[in-house]
Amino acid sequence: MVEQLDKSATRRAIISGAGKTLSLAGVAIALGGGVTSAYAAKKSDDVAQDVAILNAAIALEHEGIAAYQIGATSGLLQPAVLDLGVTFQGHHKGHRDILTNAVRELGGAPVEEKTLEEYAADFNAGALTDQEGVLRLALKLERGAANAYLGLIPSLGPDYHKVAAQMAGDEAFHAAILANALGEAVPKDALMFG
């Protein structure tokens, strides 16, 4: 049974695989009795914690998607920059979909996005007057997102460490390109994020 559970855990490491709920059932059968109940309750708390944190990550992705949407429809971007922004937005949609599936598989309800108008107010988007401003907003969000993913990994269950690190990598990639496009110097020190 232990071997079976280990295999199950490995499969769960791929986020599209079976959710933790199935794992809990397996653990409960394996242990039995009062210990099972206590262990299952603890694991249930762990699942709820993962759902809460994954939902915060979804909210972060919603915000990123909205920022690129606002930028794309601002009329401030040159066509090539617009294409780049749409590509980056597609990555954030991919993140959102992966995280949303994970929350559903854990039995949770994915957090919904706010309206574009609400995001625009949050971003003070009315202050955006040129392409540079849009790119700086995107850079700020991407840098923050890379740091956020790295900072939340220790709080997530191990099933989600890899995918959170992958998303941090995507955000850092976006940030690097945006910073270069804005003419920022390459940081001299190592460990630029986290």
């Binding site: 040159q78 780049l84 392409q131 540079e132 790119l135 390109i177 270069n180 496009a181 804005l182 003419g183």
Partner: peptide
């Protein structure tokens, strides 16, 4: 290469305009 490409996407001379 991609990063430099992104720079090239900006208006000519914008790097100095955007500042470092």
């Amino acid at each position: 290469g991609i990063a430099l490409g992104a720079t090239a996407l900006l208006p000519h001379g914008d790097n100095s305009m955007l500042g470092t």
